[in-house]
Simulated assay, not measured.
Amino acid sequence: MLTAKDFIPAAYSQTIESGEYQWSAPSNIALVKYWGKKDNQIPANPSVSFTLSNCKTITKLAFAKKENKDSLSFDLLFEGQPKEDFKPKIQKFLERIEVYLPFLKEYHFTIDTQNTFPHSSGIASSASGMAALAMNFISLEKALNPAMTDAYFYQKASLLARLGSGSACRSVKGQVVVWGKQANIEGSTDLYGVEFPNEIHANFKNYQDTILLVDKGEKQVSSTVGHDLMHNHPYASSRFAQAHENLDALKAIFKSGDLDAFIKIVESEALTLHAMMMTSMPYFILMKPNTLQIINTIWKFRNETQIPVCFTLDAGANVHVLYPENVTEKVLQFIKDELVGYCQNGQYICDEIGNGAILL
């Protein structure tokens, strides 16, 4: 198994004066949630997610050699306009990854990034954004070191993405991604995300995720602060054990295609995540009244129709409505008839399982 030291490169065989790359990377939605982390963005528990398809960040990285090699230097554009308030996060990211990419101070970078979904809509833009940025940097490193294997390329990209935003490491590859060491999942590691290596039943192919935008405002508590509050949390150790158990259970469910069992775990995980927030000190609530209305309406609809639709939540108020592809028509009609009224300005986004980052 690779260690972090294995990702620190020796001398490069090539030199490059300037150039550019452009990658898109999708968001992802965790089924088993990660909440709480150790030093260096190491997760306190393993997680598994569906990689999405339509909700993505597209990032262009232009680079040119510079005279002064004493400091990191970059310009940041968001949708073509300078975006100063994103810069500290990128600066911190570059400082964290410099040990793995020793060429960073040799270039001036221009990072031009855009999302296909509203920023701060509660869709994990840090995951897609950091994954897209990591793909660009690793592409430059591969040009400097053409001997790099494909497997190493994606592992290191995921490791770099993790240092920008933990869940970003699950946005590099597709469909179902595990991050965090789990005894019975081969290749799983705290360092980077891996494609789920076991059998996945046809029920979970092309799984749909319709994201109901309940509240598009800034969250009152950032995920970083929320993760930190797990350090002295009275229920932390039980929660971490529960995540391991649920991931074990999901492994069997992915094989059998048991949608009822899938729903129980996914909804329980979403509610547990928010229960951890409500029972930390200080405590906080990210759900809104409309989040609860949607959840209750989904439960009622599922009871009455036996259609296997369920919800999950990220660290925010928005609701991800998950369902198999073969019930798409009925569920979308239900969303239009009964759930759109609970969305801010009636907005929702239709998405589905996707394949990870793409070079454009």
Rank of each mutant, 00 (worst) to 15 (best):
T57W: 04
T57E: 02
I58D: 04
I58G: 03
I58E: 00
T59C: 11
T59L: 05
T59M: 10
K60T: 07
K60C: 00
A62R: 14
A62G: 06
A62V: 01
F63I: 05
A64W: 01
K66E: 02
K66S: 09
E67H: 07
E67S: 15
E67C: 05
K69R: 15
S71R: 08
S71P: 09
L72Q: 09
L72W: 09
S73I: 11
F74H: 08
F74Y: 08
F74P: 03
D75H: 06
D75S: 13
D75T: 07
L76N: 04
L76A: 12
L76V: 12
L77P: 09
L77W: 09
L77A: 09
F78L: 11
E79Q: 10
E79H: 04
E79V: 14
E79Y: 10
E79W: 10
Q81V: 15
K83F: 09
K83I: 11
K83G: 00
E84K: 06
E84Q: 09
E84H: 13
F86A: 14
K87R: 09
K87S: 08
P88N: 08
K89P: 07
K89D: 08
I90E: 05
I90C: 10
I90A: 12
Q91C: 08
Q91H: 07
K92Y: 13
K92M: 07
L94V: 05
R96A: 08
R96W: 06
R96F: 13
E98G: 00
E98R: 00
E98Q: 14
V99H: 02
Y100T: 05
Y100L: 12
Y100E: 05
Y100M: 08
L101F: 05
L101V: 02
L101I: 04
P102H: 04
F103I: 07
F103H: 03
L104P: 03
K105F: 06
E106V: 02
E106A: 04
Y107C: 00
Y107Q: 12
H108W: 03
H108L: 08
F109R: 00
T110L: 13
T110C: 08
T110P: 01
I111F: 01
I111E: 07
I111A: 06
